[in-house]
Design a protein around this nucleic acid. Structure first.
Length: 220
DNA sequence: CTCCCGATAT
DNA sequence: ATATCAGGAG
Protein backbone atom coordinates (compact mmCIF):
# COMPACT_ATOMS: atom_id res chain seq x y z
CA UNK A 1 0.00 0.00 0.00
CA UNK A 2 1.31 3.46 -0.91
CA UNK A 3 2.05 6.15 1.62
CA UNK A 4 -0.97 8.30 0.83
CA UNK A 5 -3.23 5.24 0.92
CA UNK A 6 -1.92 4.26 4.34
CA UNK A 7 -2.69 7.72 5.69
CA UNK A 8 -6.18 7.57 4.19
CA UNK A 9 -6.65 4.05 5.62
CA UNK A 10 -5.86 5.15 9.16
CA UNK A 11 -7.66 8.49 8.81
CA UNK A 12 -10.93 6.71 8.04
CA UNK A 13 -10.62 4.24 10.90
CA UNK A 14 -9.71 7.14 13.21
CA UNK A 15 -12.68 9.23 12.11
CA UNK A 16 -14.94 6.23 12.63
CA UNK A 17 -13.62 5.61 16.17
CA UNK A 18 -11.65 8.57 17.58
CA UNK A 19 -10.86 7.00 20.96
CA UNK A 20 -10.39 3.23 20.57
CA UNK A 21 -9.75 1.27 23.73
CA UNK A 22 -9.05 -2.29 24.76
CA UNK A 23 -12.14 -4.38 25.35
CA UNK A 24 -10.41 -6.36 28.08
CA UNK A 25 -11.57 -5.22 31.51
CA UNK A 26 -8.73 -4.40 33.91
CA UNK A 27 -8.38 -1.85 36.68
CA UNK A 28 -4.59 -1.65 36.85
CA UNK A 29 -1.46 -2.88 35.01
CA UNK A 30 -1.33 -6.14 36.94
CA UNK A 31 -4.90 -7.04 36.08
CA UNK A 32 -4.13 -6.09 32.48
CA UNK A 33 -1.18 -8.49 32.31
CA UNK A 34 -3.37 -11.26 33.70
CA UNK A 35 -6.28 -10.51 31.37
CA UNK A 36 -4.08 -10.46 28.28
CA UNK A 37 -2.29 -13.66 29.33
CA UNK A 38 -5.70 -15.32 29.71
CA UNK A 39 -6.91 -14.07 26.33
CA UNK A 40 -4.75 -16.37 24.20
CA UNK A 41 -7.00 -18.31 21.81
CA UNK A 42 -10.07 -17.02 23.67
CA UNK A 43 -12.54 -14.16 23.12
CA UNK A 44 -12.42 -10.93 25.11
CA UNK A 45 -16.05 -11.51 26.08
CA UNK A 46 -15.18 -14.90 27.54
CA UNK A 47 -12.16 -13.54 29.42
CA UNK A 48 -14.14 -10.63 30.87
CA UNK A 49 -16.86 -12.97 32.06
CA UNK A 50 -14.28 -14.95 34.05
CA UNK A 51 -12.20 -12.03 35.35
CA UNK A 52 -15.12 -9.87 36.45
CA UNK A 53 -15.52 -11.83 39.69
CA UNK A 54 -11.82 -12.66 40.03
CA UNK A 55 -10.73 -9.03 39.91
CA UNK A 56 -13.21 -8.00 42.61
CA UNK A 57 -10.92 -9.59 45.19
CA UNK A 58 -7.61 -9.90 43.35
CA UNK A 59 -5.95 -6.60 42.43
CA UNK A 60 -2.29 -7.37 43.25
CA UNK A 61 0.20 -10.19 42.56
CA UNK A 62 0.30 -11.07 46.27
CA UNK A 63 -3.47 -11.42 46.37
CA UNK A 64 -3.22 -13.76 43.37
CA UNK A 65 -0.69 -15.89 45.26
CA UNK A 66 -2.96 -15.90 48.31
CA UNK A 67 -5.83 -17.12 46.16
CA UNK A 68 -3.75 -20.04 44.85
CA UNK A 69 -3.67 -22.05 41.65
CA UNK A 70 -6.57 -24.37 42.36
CA UNK A 71 -8.97 -21.57 43.27
CA UNK A 72 -7.78 -19.60 40.24
CA UNK A 73 -8.62 -22.56 38.01
CA UNK A 74 -12.16 -22.52 39.30
CA UNK A 75 -12.45 -18.86 38.27
CA UNK A 76 -11.10 -19.37 34.75
CA UNK A 77 -12.19 -22.90 33.90
CA UNK A 78 -14.60 -21.58 31.25
CA UNK A 79 -11.63 -20.26 29.27
CA UNK A 80 -9.71 -22.52 26.94
CA UNK A 81 -6.21 -23.66 27.96
CA UNK A 82 -7.11 -22.94 31.58
CA UNK A 83 -4.63 -25.37 33.13
CA UNK A 84 -1.51 -23.82 31.64
CA UNK A 85 -2.94 -20.32 32.02
CA UNK A 86 -3.56 -20.81 35.75
CA UNK A 87 -0.06 -22.14 36.23
CA UNK A 88 1.41 -19.23 34.28
CA UNK A 89 -0.57 -16.56 36.15
CA UNK A 90 0.57 -17.91 39.52
CA UNK A 91 4.20 -18.14 38.37
CA UNK A 92 3.99 -14.69 36.83
CA UNK A 93 2.59 -13.25 40.05
CA UNK A 94 5.36 -14.92 42.05
CA UNK A 95 8.00 -13.39 39.81
CA UNK A 96 6.43 -9.92 40.01
CA UNK A 97 6.61 -10.15 43.81
CA UNK A 98 10.11 -11.68 43.95
CA UNK A 99 11.88 -9.64 41.28
CA UNK A 100 9.84 -6.50 40.52
CA UNK A 101 8.53 -5.41 43.92
CA UNK A 102 4.98 -6.32 43.00
CA UNK A 103 4.94 -3.80 40.15
CA UNK A 104 4.52 -4.44 36.42
CA UNK A 105 7.75 -3.40 34.68
CA UNK A 106 7.59 -0.84 31.87
CA UNK A 107 10.07 -2.78 29.75
CA UNK A 108 9.51 -5.33 27.00
CA UNK A 109 12.45 -7.59 27.85
CA UNK A 110 11.43 -7.67 31.50
CA UNK A 111 7.79 -8.38 30.60
CA UNK A 112 8.83 -11.25 28.35
CA UNK A 113 10.59 -12.98 31.24
CA UNK A 114 7.17 -13.42 32.87
CA UNK A 115 5.69 -16.91 32.38
CA UNK A 116 2.92 -16.81 29.79
CA UNK A 117 3.97 -13.40 28.49
CA UNK A 118 5.40 -13.28 24.98
CA UNK A 119 6.05 -10.42 22.60
CA UNK A 120 2.42 -9.81 21.71
CA UNK A 121 1.22 -9.67 25.33
CA UNK A 122 4.16 -7.45 26.27
CA UNK A 123 3.29 -5.07 23.44
CA UNK A 124 -0.31 -4.82 24.62
CA UNK A 125 0.80 -3.96 28.17
CA UNK A 126 3.32 -1.40 26.95
CA UNK A 127 0.69 0.29 24.80
CA UNK A 128 -2.35 0.18 27.07
CA UNK A 129 -0.71 0.58 30.49
CA UNK A 130 2.27 2.75 29.59
CA UNK A 131 1.28 4.58 26.40
CA UNK A 132 4.07 3.18 24.23
CA UNK A 133 3.68 3.19 20.45
CA UNK A 134 3.84 -0.59 20.11
CA UNK A 135 2.09 -2.84 17.59
CA UNK A 136 0.75 -5.97 19.25
CA UNK A 137 0.16 -8.33 16.35
CA UNK A 138 -2.50 -10.84 17.30
CA UNK A 139 -4.58 -13.07 15.03
CA UNK A 140 -6.75 -10.13 13.90
CA UNK A 141 -3.95 -7.73 13.04
CA UNK A 142 -1.99 -10.49 11.34
CA UNK A 143 -5.01 -11.19 9.14
CA UNK A 144 -5.91 -7.54 8.44
CA UNK A 145 -2.31 -6.61 7.64
CA UNK A 146 -1.91 -9.46 5.19
CA UNK A 147 -5.36 -9.19 3.59
CA UNK A 148 -5.36 -5.47 3.01
CA UNK A 149 -1.72 -5.23 1.99
CA UNK A 150 -1.05 -2.67 4.72
CA UNK A 151 1.66 -4.85 6.26
CA UNK A 152 2.38 -8.32 4.96
CA UNK A 153 4.56 -10.99 6.55
CA UNK A 154 4.84 -14.70 7.23
CA UNK A 155 5.08 -14.27 11.00
CA UNK A 156 3.49 -11.89 13.52
CA UNK A 157 6.91 -10.38 14.19
CA UNK A 158 7.46 -9.65 10.49
CA UNK A 159 4.06 -7.91 10.32
CA UNK A 160 4.84 -5.96 13.49
CA UNK A 161 8.11 -4.60 12.11
CA UNK A 162 6.43 -3.59 8.85
CA UNK A 163 3.62 -1.85 10.72
CA UNK A 164 6.17 0.01 12.78
CA UNK A 165 7.84 1.34 9.65
CA UNK A 166 4.65 1.96 7.67
CA UNK A 167 2.55 3.71 10.31
CA UNK A 168 3.00 7.50 10.48
CA UNK A 169 2.01 9.97 13.15
CA UNK A 170 -0.54 10.86 14.43
CA UNK A 171 -1.78 7.26 14.14
CA UNK A 172 0.96 5.32 15.89
CA UNK A 173 -0.43 5.25 19.42
CA UNK A 174 -3.86 3.89 18.51
CA UNK A 175 -3.03 2.01 15.29
CA UNK A 176 -3.09 -1.42 16.88
CA UNK A 177 -6.54 -0.85 18.39
CA UNK A 178 -7.98 0.44 15.14
CA UNK A 179 -6.66 -2.62 13.34
CA UNK A 180 -7.78 -5.15 15.93
CA UNK A 181 -11.30 -3.72 16.18
CA UNK A 182 -11.57 -3.59 12.40
CA UNK A 183 -10.47 -7.21 12.24
CA UNK A 184 -12.85 -8.31 14.98
CA UNK A 185 -16.02 -6.68 13.73
CA UNK A 186 -15.61 -6.10 9.97
CA UNK A 187 -12.59 -7.88 8.47
CA UNK A 188 -13.54 -11.14 10.20
CA UNK A 189 -11.78 -14.44 9.62
CA UNK A 190 -14.81 -16.47 8.52
CA UNK A 191 -17.08 -13.98 6.79
CA UNK A 192 -15.43 -10.60 6.19
CA UNK A 193 -18.11 -7.93 5.73
CA UNK A 194 -16.55 -6.10 2.81
CA UNK A 195 -19.86 -4.60 1.75
CA UNK A 196 -19.85 -2.34 4.81
CA UNK A 197 -16.08 -1.85 5.09
CA UNK A 198 -15.04 1.81 5.00
CA UNK A 199 -11.58 1.01 3.59
CA UNK A 200 -12.60 -1.59 1.01
CA UNK A 201 -11.47 0.61 -1.91
CA UNK A 202 -7.95 0.74 -0.43
CA UNK A 203 -7.81 -3.01 0.23
CA UNK A 204 -5.97 -5.63 -1.82
CA UNK A 205 -8.29 -8.47 -0.76
CA UNK A 206 -9.64 -9.89 -4.00
CA UNK A 207 -12.94 -11.67 -3.27
CA UNK A 208 -14.82 -8.67 -1.90
CA UNK A 209 -17.63 -10.42 -0.14
CA UNK A 210 -21.12 -9.27 -1.19
CA UNK A 211 -23.90 -8.48 1.29
CA UNK A 212 -25.89 -11.51 2.43
CA UNK A 213 -28.96 -12.24 0.34
CA UNK A 214 -32.27 -11.85 2.08
CA UNK A 215 -33.25 -15.12 3.66
CA UNK A 216 -35.77 -16.96 1.55
CA UNK A 217 -38.84 -18.19 3.41
CA UNK A 218 -38.55 -21.87 4.24
CA UNK A 219 -40.67 -24.42 2.46
CA UNK A 220 -42.88 -26.28 4.91
C1' DC B 1 6.33 -28.34 14.78
C1' DT B 2 2.87 -29.84 18.59
C1' DC B 3 0.28 -29.21 22.62
C1' DC B 4 -2.86 -26.71 25.47
C1' DC B 5 -8.77 -26.34 25.49
C1' DG B 6 -13.89 -24.19 26.58
C1' DA B 7 -17.29 -21.11 24.43
C1' DT B 8 -19.24 -19.30 20.41
C1' DA B 9 -20.46 -18.43 15.50
C1' DT B 10 -21.25 -20.37 11.19
C1' DA C 1 -19.55 -30.55 12.73
C1' DT C 2 -15.96 -27.35 12.55
C1' DA C 3 -13.37 -22.98 12.46
C1' DT C 4 -12.09 -19.42 15.38
C1' DC C 5 -10.91 -16.81 19.42
C1' DA C 6 -6.15 -10.22 21.66
C1' DG C 7 -0.52 -16.96 22.07
C1' DG C 8 3.15 -19.03 24.41
C1' DA C 9 6.16 -22.79 25.67
C1' DG C 10 8.57 -27.17 24.94
Amino acid sequence: MKRAEIVEFYARLAADNPHPETELEAGNPFQLVVAVALSAQATDVGVNKATRRLFETVTTPQQMLDLGEDALKQHIKTIGLFNTKAKNVIALSQRLVDVYGGEVPNDRDALETLPGVGRKTANVVLNVAFGAETFAVDTHIFRVGNRTGLARGKTPLAVELKLDKATPQPFRLHAHHWLILHGRYVCKARRPECWRCIVADLCAFKPKTPPPKAALPKEP
